[in-house]
C-alpha cells in the first residue's frame, strides 16, 4: 500500500517535469530535485524506489544515470500561547512547554518539485 502511494506521487512529479520540459523543448532529464517535508506524508526511500522504476520504464525521457535528489524539510510548530517553537512528532499541536494543544505547524508539510535538469533536443 505504502510504496503504491509513492508510485502515484512519482507519477504526478514526473508529469509536472514532463509537461514543463516539453514546453521548453528539453529532453533527456538528468536530475530531478524535490523538497519533502517531514510530515508531508511521503517516504523518501519509497520515492527513490519509484523514481528508479519510472526511469527504467521511460528511457526516452531520462538518461541512464538520471538521479533524484531529495532535500528534507524539518517540521516545526509554534505554540500560539507562549511562542515556543518545537519539532512536532506525533502529537502535532501539543506544546511541550505549555502542555496544551496550542501548536500551529510552520514547516514540514512542503512537498515540491524544486527543479530538474535536461538538455535541449538535438
Amino acid at each position: 500500500m505504502k510504496s503504491m502511494h509513492e508510485m502515484a506521487l512519482m507519477g504526478d512529479i514526473l508529469q509536472l517535469v514532463h509537461e514543463d520540459a516539453a514546453e521548453k523543448g528539453l529532453c533527456k532529464i538528468e536530475k530531478v530535485e524535490l523538497i519533502v517535508g517531514e510530515i508531508a506524508n511521503a517516504m523518501p526511500d519509497a520515492l527513490r524506489m519509484a523514481f528508479d522504476i519510472f526511469r527504467e520504464q521511460n528511457s526516452h525521457l531520462f538518461t541512464k544515470q538520471a538521479q533524484l535528489v531529495i532535500h528534507l524539510e524539518v517540521a516545526e510548530a509554534e505554540c500560539i500561547l507562549c511562542g515556543e517553537k518545537y519539532r512536532p512528532e506525533q502529537k502535532i499541536a501539543l506544546c511541550p512547554n505549555c502542555n496544551v494543544p496550542s501548536g500551529k505547524v510552520l514547516t514540514g508539510e512542503t512537498f515540491q518539485v524544486l527543479s530538474y535538469e535536461g538538455s535541449l533536443e538535438k
Binding site: L16, A21, K24, L26, Q112, V113, S115, E117, G118, S119
Partner: peptide, 9 residues
C-alpha cells in the same frame, strides 16, 4: 540546462 519549478507535487 537547469529549470527551477518550485511547484507543489
Amino acid at each position: 540546462m537547469k529549470v527551477t519549478l518550485r511547484t507543489d507535487v
